[in-house]
């Protein structure tokens, strides 16, 4: 494991912790898209189908369990927790799941490395993760007052993706036969979706102003 990969995983972990902190401690999910969280739960459920059959490392299994457990518990909190649910911006979070899930499923059935159930599900999870942030970005744009934790959460998610690209570049030059077009293109698309957000995030940071995305 190289430093970029580890930093990427830790940034991903930090993003989840920031979100759990907001939800568990502050008991608020204001500005957080339930749609995006449900899509992430689906991403991990379909990607980690081999969690108990294909052992890679202790680190790998633990991280998978954390991402599975946290994504489903976040969805549970927003939907079922009495106090947290009250802060959910239901009327603003209007993105339709199917507009995202169906195209990803069709694409995974058409473009994959092997036509087996597990492989198609794994590819589907890559395509889905690439666009799962869209409902969250739309909600951010509609939110007039983006609080610090929500801004940090999205920033950490974007940073995690950028670090994974550096990890792929590093692995490409240091390992033999390390070419994964599907993973790379999906990952690149996913990172590009954050470009706009990054721009305004750094602007607000530089000017010491509140983060606000233009409508």
């Amino acid at each position: 494991m190289n430093i970029f990969r580890l930093a990427g995983d830790m940034t991903h972990l930090a993003s989840v912790l920031v979100l759990l902190l907001k939800i568990h401690t502050i008991k608020s999910c204001a500005g957080i898209s339930l749609k995006t969280q449900e899509l992430y739960a689906l991403v991990f459920a379909t990607r980690y189908l081999d969690i108990f059959t294909n052992y890679i490392s202790f680190y790998n299994t633990i991280m998978k369990l954390i991402f599975l457990g946290s994504s489903f518990s976040i969805v549970w909190y927003i939907k079922r927790h009495k106090i947290v649910h009250r802060s959910y911006d239901k009327d603003q979070d209007t993105f339709r799941h199917w507009f995202i899930v169906l195209p990803c499923l069709v694409l995974a059935l058409l473009i994959n490395e092997r036509f087996t159930f597990k492989e198609v599900m794994w590819t589907f999870s890559l395509y889905l993760e690439a666009v799962a942030i869209l409902p969250q970005l739309v909600l951010l744009q509609r939110t007039r007052n983006i609080d610090n934790l929500t801004g940090q959460y999205v920033f950490l998610l974007g940073a995690y993706r950028a670090l994974y690209i550096l990890n792929w570049i590093y692995r490409y030059f240091t390992e033999d036969h390390y070419i994964h077009w599907i993973t790379w293109i999906a990952g690149l698309v996913q990172t590009l979706l954050y470009a706009d957000f990054f721009y305004y995030y750094f602007q607000s940071w530089k000017n010491n102003a509140k983060l606000e995305l233009p409508a």
Partner: peptide, 10 residues
């Protein structure tokens, strides 16, 4: 599918 090195990523 499990023989691919990319599968060690999360």
């Amino acid at each position: 599918s499990s023989d691919k090195d990319v599968k060690d990523e999360l």
